[in-house]
């Protein structure tokens, strides 16, 4: 995929929630384009429509009006089953609250999306290998057989990231992935996401924290369901990553003066 491929293109997206007589305009005409390989932070005050946008981008929801093209394909009017298939094949989700299934081990959690593959189904053995590789890539190979409750928050989120990666998605959507984590774990998760982005995965991430957003190259701000600003940091990926390393190092020094 070249740098110029549009992964996300939305045209005048609107989402209207009808609450009896009162209508809530959660999204009021959002048009954005996100290219392959970008790492985008979405910011904005509470209730501005960030999650609503992410849900549509993630094919979990359909817009009330407007169009959404995912990698050139119009998904605005697909059926629930078709959307499920798209989610399975092309999108990885990272949630604020991790959303691991509590009775399954880390490895089983990571393998979960593979159960719902419709074509090119892998054998159980291949799935296991792939899940192990994914866990290894987030640095948790030795925790494969632990239950979520036996893992720290940061570790759980890393398992969730491994799960998001398992189907080689073109897009990773993360709604406040560091919202439940301390500073150190947050930075580690950011480092991990950067690593993925360097390998070519497009990432869109909602965050409230300016210093977390500062680690991305593009920041989109939303206010009252409208695009407020779309700001490119201009920095290259390597620079952002270097800054991240510095923050982590600084954190370690604080811990042991």
């Amino acid at each position: 995929m070249t740098e110029q491929t549009k992964i996300i293109e939305t045209i005048e997206l609107k989402k209207i929630y009808g609450m009896g007589d009162v209508e809530v305009m959660a999204l009021n005409g959002i048009s954005i384009q996100i290219l392959a390989g970008e790492f985008v932070a979405v910011m904005g005050p509470s209730g501005s429509g960030k999650s609503t946008l992410m849900n549509i981008l993630g094919c979990l929801d359909r817009p009330s009006e407007g169009r959404y093209l995912l990698a050139g394909e119009d998904v605005s009017n697909m059926s629930r089953a078709e959307l499920a298939h798209i989610r399975n094949q092309r999108i990885g989700f990272v949630f604020q609250s991790f959303n691991l299934l509590p009775k399954m081990t880390a490895l089983e959690n990571v393998m979960l999306p593979l159960i719902y593959q419709r074509e090119n189904r892998l054998s159980v053995h291949e799935r296991r290998q792939r899940a192990e590789a994914a866990l290894e890539s987030v640095g948790l190979a030795e925790r494969a057989h632990h239950l979520p409750k036996e893992l720290s928050g940061g570790q759980q989120q890393r398992v969730a990231i491994a799960r998001a990666l398992i189907n080689d998605p073109i897009l990773i959507l993360a709604d406040e992935p560091t919202g439940n984590l301390d500073t150190r774990s947050s930075l580690e998760i950011m480092e991990l996401l950067h690593g993925l982005n360097e390998r070519g995965v497009t990432i869109v991430m909602v965050t409230h924290e300016a210093d977390i957003a500062a680690h991305t190259r593009r920041v989109i701000r939303i206010r009252d369901g409208r695009l407020d600003s779309d700001h490119h940091n201009g920095g290259r990926s390597e620079e952002a990553k270097a800054a991240l390393r510095q923050s982590l190092a600084a954190l370690s020094e604080e811990a042991q003066p």
Binding site: G58, L60, A84, Q89, F93, N99, Y116
Partner: peptide
């Protein structure tokens, strides 16, 4: 419910 939501998010169809 949450488990169902998650399964749907990672690709389970209503039929699944």
């Amino acid at each position: 419910t949450r488990e169902i939501g998650l399964r749907q998010a990672v690709g389970a169809t209503p039929g699944d």
